[in-house]
């Protein structure tokens, strides 16, 4: 038996008026999303300095408990949200993907900080993954280096907005054939295999990073080793003394 979709609407103004009289009108969808967005349990999982900001967000001053997200779970099985807080090195990336796979549906990911978005300052490095979105889908990208606790709270609020927009009838985790486990990359001789998962992420057509960045290989004019031996340095000719500023004659009355 197919359920008829519920199309009944109560406009917000009427709802507010009724609420003042102590009558609550709601929908199952709103209740469902209200419950979910008010109890997002993040995974207790930090990789680098962003994790310190995440800890600060959980402490009393910023108090992530105001948003119902204070229960940092030490197991991916109990967590709704993975905050990828910090640099994802190539050595750590398989474990991050594995943890994502182990989370129960519905699951969300916030990438916190420049490193987990795109490699950050280590983008040219041989050992840092250029963004965890190469292997797993990401809901909220949260830039900063590291983002302040307010920013993490803002990211959490954005995630709550996203949750509010989801429908219980069409939620993908109740549909058949949902595949939200991604193959775990392996260590290869030059980096991770594969370099990215094309189902999740694909390189942009015109990536300006290719022109601006890239591996600086100092071969060519810069190949000469700096001469570390003590060399007598010829005394550099002294620059011509700049024209002496016009001296103000001492004023007679100032003596």
């Amino acid at each position: 038996m197919a359920l008829a979709p519920n199309t009944s609407q109560v406009d917000d103004g009427l709802k507010n008026e009724l609420a003042k009289k102590g009558i609550v009108v709601t929908t199952l969808n709103q209740l469902y999303n209200w419950g979910r967005r008010s109890s997002i349990w993040p995974m207790q999982f930090g990789l680098a300095c962003c994790a310190i900001e995440m800890i600060a967000t959980a402490c009393a001053r910023y108090d992530i408990a105001r948003f119902g997200a204070e229960l940092f779970r030490p197991s991916p099985r109990q967590a709704d949200l993975m905050i990828v807080a910090g640099t994802v090195t190539k050595k750590m990336a398989p474990q991050v993907v594995r943890l994502y796979n182990q989370m129960a549906e519905p699951k969300y990911v916030i990438t916190m900080g420049a490193c987990s978005i795109a490699g950050g300052p280590f983008i040219d490095g041989y050992n840092v993954l250029r963004g965890i979105d190469r292997y797993i889908p990401v809901d909220v990208h949260l830039p900063g280096c590291p983002p302040r606790p307010e920013a993490l709270l803002y990211g959490l609020m954005e995630l709550q907005k996203k949750i509010d927009g989801q429908q219980i009838e069409t939620a993908e985790w109740y549909q058949q054939g949902l595949k939200r486990e991604y193959p775990i990359p392996e260590f290869g001789p030059h980096g991770l295999i594969p370099k990215f998962n094309p189902e999740v992420w694909q390189p942009r057509e015109n990536d300006l990073r290719k022109e601006r960045y890239g591996q600086p290989i100092m071969i060519g004019k810069k190949t000469k080793a700096p001469n570390l031996d003590v060399v007598a340095v010829a005394a550099a000719p002294k620059p011509a003394a700049p024209a002496a500023p016009a001296q103000t004659p001492p004023t007679p009355g100032m003596a």
Partner: peptide
Amino acid sequence: LQEDSETL
């Protein structure tokens, strides 16, 4: 020589 991380 570093790998090109954008090309499979």
